[in-house]
Design a protein around this nucleic acid. Structure first.
Length: 928
DNA sequence: CGCCTCCAGAATATTCTGGAGGCGGTGCCATATT
């Protein structure tokens, strides 16, 4: 670590002990904060010798830091007995927590809360103490108090993090971690210890980007802190800040290692057998890298999550086991088009043993297909997750002997399951009801957090899946981001890039209307462009024309892409920030499948992030909607505990079908109801003549209950028929289908309703729902911040993606803009450009430090700016821009490390130039 | 951001103006109608 901190302060323990009390305290505080505990103790000893009063909280912290936990606690308890105040109490609770003595901590905590019920840090400690005692409800209510008390405080975020983490929900926990980090960047600082804890958390959850952010923040903080402490020690003779690296306070325990991505050993004989099958069945000469490991693990019956890049031959990973082993392989696929492509691309001999079940089939075709499956003539079945709501379908698949459950495009489970296609969250139940066969989840994009979510949603556990990760680096993709000032420049850039790049490409835009506008502009510049989104009626036609090369540029929403296999896409342009980093990687991943150089440019404005954050913040689910849906269900089920609820009812209550079903899923998650398998709405039954089924006691009993005799028929609501039996709805439907298969009964089922059991409302249901909405929002906002961070980063972009997506890290790719690759378009056009605006902000700060609000008012020429600000020569320099835009400009300068926030002693925050910012503002014509 | 819509009030009895507010995208299944 080099020189000790005392040496870096140019002082000694004796000298510190002889200082005035406040200064001694300040220095010791500094030493403890940066974990120079031995130095701190030496100073405290010297101070005691010099007759200074004791500093129990700091003393104890230093003792604890050196491993003398018992002595530290003892010290605090003694000084508490002598009437010490809040800081000692807080420290004591913290130390008892660290010493894993939560019961003793509780004692002091109660006392603390009695004295300072308005102290958010105390409530935060309460959350931690309750968690340490394993008392989740108490932790929950402490968190509620905390949130009510100080919703915007870092403790609210940290408390939510701790709670979710303790409950095993790392995904949501990470979202709150990011929130804490983000909050503290603006208003109040996270303490060094809290930053270190957060860093340990992000290390454990495999999030190197946030680890890097925290490290950078710690280093900056240390340098500032050292300079300030020095200045305080040695008067105003301000020594130049040393650029010493911050000592890296290490987490006390080593972070648990994240899931490793090692494949099973594939022995030579196994590999030969697999390659022989691949050759015989599919005509492939050999296996691609990664395939053998996945296939081997699948054949051994392990649960596998395979994250393989596009073009790595994912389908073969499950098709090979499907056709070389026994039983049926069921593939859950998100899109009908994908299922069809997969089946169509199979070799002839295999295609006869594969089938895609979808709503494109009519009733007769569906029945034929199910019969074939039940008869064991089919090895590979494709279906959408929604299909798994039908117990009849599950029964048929189980009957044929389900060998494995494959989840294709498995990221959809996490990305869509929570707010768009809730039936992805029903997979776990369906998997269990199918006898819990081995699961094989396949995707090209799943950052560690999504991997954990997939695992949780499919198996309800963590660590049960073997995770196999291929190399996601695509060296032929030239990645770049361009910051633009306004819409004019944005359009100009799009046209310029689309025109400069040979070959065909995709422009991703954020709204349907925008797609149409951009396509129109491109056509006006002589580019063969067409728009594509879910609202046009000739989607297939547009796609075909693009595939054939008649259209060279598709301007599309996110609707375009999954399953598009065009090998020579030369460029991907993003008109504005995409939804998330994963989404971005998916979208650029569609370029250059042929391995040729392809250009991917993300065009964004400072406005984009704020706008997306606002959208995410609003969320699409509201408590009001949830109440309406719940009310509608209560009405539909009536006094009975279980009811048959037409989904139209849910749709009507929610205003839209997706929202309605998502609401159902949320109500189910908090325990207000249980949604069972869907049931038919109406049934008509007919008993064929000369029926041998009457010899079967179960069937005979059923006939009697239905009042059926040998030749009669009956029809009616499924619910009414059910009431005459002693069966569960799933049971009755399965019996009916079985008797139909046996030829004892002709069955006609029509319509489908949701079967909903209303449960006794848990006391916490309301606040749980509120929390789910808040969690969702935090997660969505985090995703926005991540992609905005990617757009602004000055580090290698491929490296950023590798970090984010959990791939193999590379230092420099050499092919992105931050690694020096240049774009085939001129740098920046003239005019009152961004540089001039950014420079005005920097120069204003070069005059003196300003607060955030005042700086914005100053630049905007707002008369509400302070007197002094109005005197600045930059007053009104950005008069033509709005305050919001200026605020965002300032934030982006901060993100670029040109300016930084400094906390003042009285709690205020001012912005000032960093050394980079000083250089940049002095240089005049900076580059960006 | 910048554009659109909505609304209130003004200038004149229906249009004009200004300000404020809002802004999104993905697909199954089923059922009813063409």
């Amino acid at each position: 670590m080099g020189a000790s901190l005392l040496e870096q302060l140019n002082t000694s323990a004796e000298a510190v002990g002889a200082l005035p009390v406040e200064l001694t305290q300040r220095v010791v505080d500094f030493l403890v904060r940066w974990e120079a505990h031995a130095d701190a103790l030496a100073c405290l000893d010297a101070a005691a010798r010099a007759g200074q009063p004791p500093l129990p909280a700091l003393h104890a912290a230093a003792l604890h830091g050196l491993g003398h936990a018992a002595a530290a606690i003892d010290l605090l308890e003694r000084s508490l007995a002598q009437g010490a105040g809040l800081p000692v109490r807080l420290t004591l609770v913290e130390l008892l927590l660290a010493a894993e003595a939560p019961e003793r901590a509780t004692h002091y905590l109660d006392d603390l809360l009695n004295r300072a019920a308005g102290l958010s840090r105390a409530w935060y400690l309460a959350v931690l103490v309750h968690l340490a005692r394993g008392d989740f409800p108490a932790a929950q209510s402490a968190l509620d108090r905390l949130v009510a008390l100080a919703p915007e405080s870092r403790y609210a975020s940290l408390g939510a993090l701790a709670l979710h983490r303790a409950q095993g929900d790392v995904v949501t926990a990470a979202a709150y971690g990011a929130q804490a980090l983000n909050r503290s960047a603006r208003d109040e600082g996270l303490s060094v210890a809290e930053l270190v804890q957060l860093r340990a958390f992000f290390q454990a959850t495999d999030d190197p980007i946030r680890v890097r952010i925290i490290n950078e923040r710690l280093i900056a903080r240390f340098n500032r802190d050292l300079a300030a402490t020095r200045a305080a020690l040695h008067g105003a003779e301000e020594a130049p800040a040393p650029q010493a690296a911050a000592p890296e306070p290490a987490p006390r325990r080593a972070a648990p290692t994240p899931v490793t991505a090692t494949g099973p050993e594939v022995i030579a004989a196994e590999r030969r057998a697999m390659e022989e099958s691949a050759r015989r069945l599919f005509g492939y000469p050999s296996l691609l890298p990664g395939q053998a490991e996945v296939v081997a693990a699948a054949l051994r019956g392990e649960h596998v999550l395979a994250v393989l890049p596009t073009g790595a031959g994912k389908s073969l990973c499950y098709q090979l086991p499907a056709f070389s082993g026994a039983g049926v392989t069921l593939v859950i696929s998100p899109l009908i088009a994908l299922m069809k492509d997969q089946v169509d691309n199979l070799p002839d001999a295999l295609r006869r043993q594969a089938i895609a079940i979808s709503s494109m089939m009519d009733g007769a075709a569906l029945r034929r297909a199910l019969d074939q499956i039940a008869a064991g003539q089919i090895r590979l079945v494709y279906a959408a997750p929604e299909r798994l709501r039908q117990i009849g379908f599950l029964r048929v698949v189980a009957q044929a002997g389900l060998a494995r459950l494959v989840i294709d495009e498995a990221h959809c489970v996490s990305v869509w399951g929570h707010d768009f296609r809730p039936d992805y969250l029903h997979l776990r139940q369906a998997h269990r009801d199918l006898g819990a066969p081995p699961v094989l989840a396949m995707t090209a994009t799943a950052p560690p957090r999504v991997r954990q979510d997939i695992e949780r949603q499919l198996l309800g556990t963590q660590g049960a899946m073997r995770v196999l990760v291929g190399d996601i680096f695509r060296p032929n993709l030239q990645l770049a981001a361009l910051r633009v000032r306004d819409d004019d420049e944005r359009i100009h850039r799009l046209v310029e890039l689309a025109g400069a790049q040979k070959g065909c490409g995709i422009v991703y835009a954020r709204s349907r209307r925008r797609c149409e506008e951009v396509a129109e502009v491109l056509r006006g510049r002589g580019i063969r462009a067409a728009h594509y989104h879910a609202g046009i009626d000739n989607r297939d036609e547009v796609q075909d024309r693009f595939m054939r090369g008649e259209v060279s540029v598709i301007v599309a929403t996110v609707a375009f892409g999954m399953g598009i296999d065009k090998r020579d896409i030369r460029f991907i342009l993003h008109d504005g920030l995409p939804n998330s980093v994963e989404g971005y990687y998916q979208e650029v991943g569609r370029a250059g499948r042929d391995g040729q150089h392809s250009l991917c440019v993300l065009i964004y404005g400072d406005y984009d992030e704020g706008s997306l954050l606002r959208l995410a913040g609003r969320g699409q689910m509201s408590l009001d909607t949830l109440r309406k849906v719940y009310g509608a269900i209560q009405q539909a089920t009536g006094p009975r505990a279980m009811g048959f609820v037409p989904l139209d009812v849910v749709t009507a209550a929610a205003g839209d079908s997706t929202t309605g079903r998502v609401a159902l899923s949320m109500l189910e998650q908090v325990g207000l109801l249980r949604r069972r398998y869907d049931a038919p709405r109406t049934v008509s039954l007919q008993v064929p003549r000369r029926n041998r089924g009457v010899d079967d006691p179960a069937f005979f009993d059923f006939m009697q209950r239905m009042g059926l005799d040998r030749q009669s028929a009956v029809a009616g609501e499924f619910g009414d028929l059910l009431a005459r039996t002693a069966m569960q709805p799933e049971e009755l439907e399965q019996w009916l289908l079985a008797w139909q298969a046996a030829g004892w009964l002709r069955v006609d089922l029509a319509g489908r309703d949701a079967v909903i059991e209303l449960l006794d409302p848990p006391a916490r249901a309301g606040s749980d729902l509120e929390r789910m909405i808040a969690d969702r929002t935090a997660l969505d906002q985090q995703r926005v911040r991540d992609i905005a961070d990617f757009a602004r980063t000055r580090h290698c972009r491929h490296g950023y993606l590798a970090d984010y997506l959990g791939g193999h890290r590379r230092r420099r790719c050499g092919v992105c803009d931050n690694c020096g690759a240049t774009l085939p378009v001129p740098a920046r056009r003239g005019g009152p450009d961004f540089d001039a605006q950014a420079r005005a902000a920097l120069l204003a700060l070069a005059e003196q430090a300003w607060g955030r609000r005042n700086l914005v008012r100053l630049l905007a020429g707002d008369p509400a700016a302070s007197e002094r600000a109005q005197q600045s020569s930059y007053y009104g320099a950005l008069r033509e821009r709005t305050p919001t835009a200026i605020g965002q400009l300032v934030e982006s300068l901060e993100a670029d490390g040109l300016i930084s926030a400094r906390e003042l002693d009285h709690g205020g925050v001012v912005l000032e130039l960093t050394s980079r910012g000083r250089n940049e503002s002095a240089r005049g014509k900076g580059r960006r």
